[in-house]
Amino acid sequence: MNGRTLHDALLRVLTDGPLRREVLAGRASPERGVGPAEAEVLRLVDCDRLERMARFMARHFYRERIVRLFSGARALASRTGRDPLSVLEGPSFREYLAGARLGSPESADAIARLVEETLSPEEDGRPGDLPYWRDLVRYEGTLFRAEAAPRTWSAVREPSPRPRRSPWLRIAEFDWDVPAVLPAVLRGGEVPLSARAPSRLFFAASPSGKVNVARCPDALRSLLEALDGTRSPEELAPSLGVDRDALETTLSRLRDLGAVL
């Protein structure tokens, strides 16, 4: 054990509620990155402070994401009377923090649900005169969930020779063209009538953690569905009826966006 392995173990227990309970109960978990020596030290830490620090980190983690990813709903808070950040004050959120696994899809989904319940408590989920509200909330909830993908901190992620769509990729359809709605909402302006148009979008997190949204027409959806990790671009191009160079260019862009591995 050295400082690095111990600090790694500390970060793991701070960010993973179930693991923290196991380690504090006296069970090392080498397969999850907490060896016996590190577990022994962590068991001697002031438990109350460890739990408090874990909840503190979880609160910051999700607060930052609610601010960033529910920005449209936040911008409308004074009009709707529903602020996504109010979820932070609720007992459900606080209870959830102790068991959260930061960055995991499960915890992102649980927190997104709490926010969505706060924003759309009524049956129609549409406050006042905002016909796009339901789509806006669903769009931002999808952003929130898509963000919970693995992060690459410094090194470049090597592309797979047999490209496959990211397992964290999400495709969603909306009655409104939300990418046209959102800028108007953030400016505090009126949403143009032209934004009342169906849209299909994909949501993916790039290796740096940025969530990207792009339109997903039929041809792109077919391409993404074909990327199952079993065929090289050379093999894929003829079956898709596209030029190989053009396919490589598209794949490169999709990798940058985090849609393809």
Binding site: R4, L6, D8, R12, L102
Partner: peptide
């Protein structure tokens, strides 16, 4: 703020342990 392998992270300032290796 993140483990050596980058798999776990806190996304908020957090100090290291003040050991010789670090």
């Amino acid at each position: 703020v993140h483990t050596t392998d980058g798999g776990r992270f806190v996304d908020y300032v957090f100090p290291p342990i003040y050991t010789e290796d670090l």
